[in-house]
Design a binder for these strands. Structure first.
Lengths: 205, 205
DNA sequence: AATGTGTGTTACCGGTCAGTAACGTCCCAA
DNA sequence: TTGGGACGTTACTGACCGGTAACACACATT
C-alpha cells in the first residue's frame, strides 16, 4: 500500500533534534513532528526513536507504551497552544477586544501557513477506540481553549459572548479542516474577513 | 416479473450484509462501515472481506489494491452526499431560500446524530502521502459540494452569495470536527442557530 | 457435455509493528 | 574505586498486514 512510510522516513543524517536535550525531550519532539507528517498510526516507535537520535529501548523506558507517548505529545501540544493567551495579553495588555482580533489573526495566519490542521483534531480523527486515554487529553484541551475564548469574548464586552466564541471556534476549526481536505483554494481563505464581520455584528448590540 | 426465489440458497445469513447483492457491492458497503468505525489504516482488507461475507481473493479481483477500494468507497460516499441537492429540490421545489435552510437543517441533524464526522474529511486527515489517489477524490467532492452551495445561495437571492456559502461550510465543517474532538458538549450545539442568523444577516442587504 | 466466468478456500510471502530480554557502555556521585 | 543509574545495541517474539498463487467449485451459456 502506498501509505507505507518510505525507508528514508527517519533519515537522521540531519536529526530533527539537538543532542543538547535529554532523550525524553528529543523523543517527544520527534514524535510530535512525525505524528504530524505521517499520522499516529502511520509511524512506528522505531522510526520515532531513531529520528530522536535514540532507540526503542530508551523510548520504552520513558513511556510504557506507544499510547502513553501519544498522550504526552498531545499534552505538550495543547500546553503550547495555551501559550497564546499570555502572548495576547502581552501584545495588547488590558485590551480584550484587540486580543480577540489578535486571536483570529493568529488562527488565520497559522491556517494559511500550514495546511496540516490541528494536531488534537487529527489525533481525535485517528483514534476511534472508545476509552483511549488520548481522547480525554484532547477533550480537556479543547474544552479549556473554548472556555478561554468565551472568557475573552466576555471581557471584550460582547453581550452574547458565549455565542460569539462558539461561532468563532466553529469557523476556525472548519477552516483548518477545509485546508486539509480541499487544499489552498478552500473557503478558509476568507476566514479572517468572516470572523471580523462576525465580531463586528456581535459587538453592536 | 414474478421472479422465483429459486434454487440458489447458499444462504449465509449470519453476515452483516445481505447476500442479495454481488460481492463487489457487499465489499464496498462493508468497507465504508468499517472505515467509519476503525479508520482506513485501522482495519485490514481481510476483515473487510469477511464482514462482507466474502474473502480477500475476491476483494483483490475487484480492487487491485486497498487504495483502490478506499477510492471507490470515497466516491460512493460522495455520490450519496450529492443526493442532498435533488432531495432539497424535491422537498422545496423552486424555493432556493427554503432549500438553503433545509441544507442547514440536514447538516445540523446529521452532526447531532452522528459524532463520527465526515468520511471524506476523516480520510483526508488519515491519508497524508502526497499524490495519494484518494486525495483527488476528496478534493473534487468537496469542491463540487462547495460549488453547489454557492449556486444555491446565489439562487436564494443573496448578494454576497459566495461569502455566505463559504461561511456556512466553515461552520458546518467546524461543527462536525468539534463533535469528534470535544464530544456532545461542543460548540456545534448551536450550529443551526448560528447558521440561520448568518443567513438572515446576508439576506438583508 | 464442454467451456468460461465468478467465486471460495487454503496456504504462503515479505514486511512492519509494538513490545521485551539480555547485555554492554558511559558517566557521575559517594 | 566502586556502584548505580541512564542510555545504547542487538536480537528476538508474536501478531498483523497487504498481496499473491494454486486449486476447487458452482453455475450459466452454448
Amino acid at each position: 500500500m502506498s501509505s507505507t512510510p518510505s525507508k528514508t522516513l527517519a533519515d537522521n543524517s540531519d536529526k530533527l533534534v539537538t543532542t543538547l536535550e535529554r532523550p525524553r525531550e528529543r523523543i517527544v519532539k520527534s514524535a510530535i513532528e512525525l505524528f504530524r507528517q505521517h499520522g499516529i498510526k502511520g509511524i512506528g516507535v522505531d522510526a520515532i526513536a531513531e529520528a530522536a537520535g535514540s532507540n526503542k529501548m530508551t523510548l520504552y523506558r520513558h513511556f510504557g507504551c506507544k499510547d502513553d507517548l501519544v498522550c504526552e505529545c498531545l499534552k505538550q501540544v495543547s500546553s503550547e497552544k495555551e501559550r497564546i493567551w499570555v502572548d495576547l495579553e502581552n501584545a495588547y495588555p488590558g485590551d480584550p477586544a484587540r486580543q480577540l482580533r489578535g486571536w483570529v489573526d493568529e488562527a488565520a495566519q497559522r491556517i494559511f501557513n500550514d495546511l496540516r490542521g490541528c494536531d488534537l483534531v487529527n489525533a481525535a480523527v485517528e483514534i476511534k477506540e472508545a476509552g483511549h486515554p488520548a481522547q480525554k487529553v484532547i477533550m480537556d484541551a479543547k474544552k479549556a481553549h473554548m472556555q478561554h475564548l468565551i472568557e475573552l469574548c466576555r471581557q471584550a464586552g460582547v453581550q452574547q459572548y458565549e455565542q460569539l466564541a462558539q461561532a468563532l471556534v466553529l469557523l476556525v476549526e472548519g477552516a483548518r479542516v477545509c485546508g486539509q481536505s480541499i487544499g489552498t483554494e478552500g473557503p478558509q481563505q476568507r476566514l479572517k474577513q468572516t470572523c471580523d464581520a462576525l465580531i463586528d455584528a456581535f459587538s453592536k448590540h
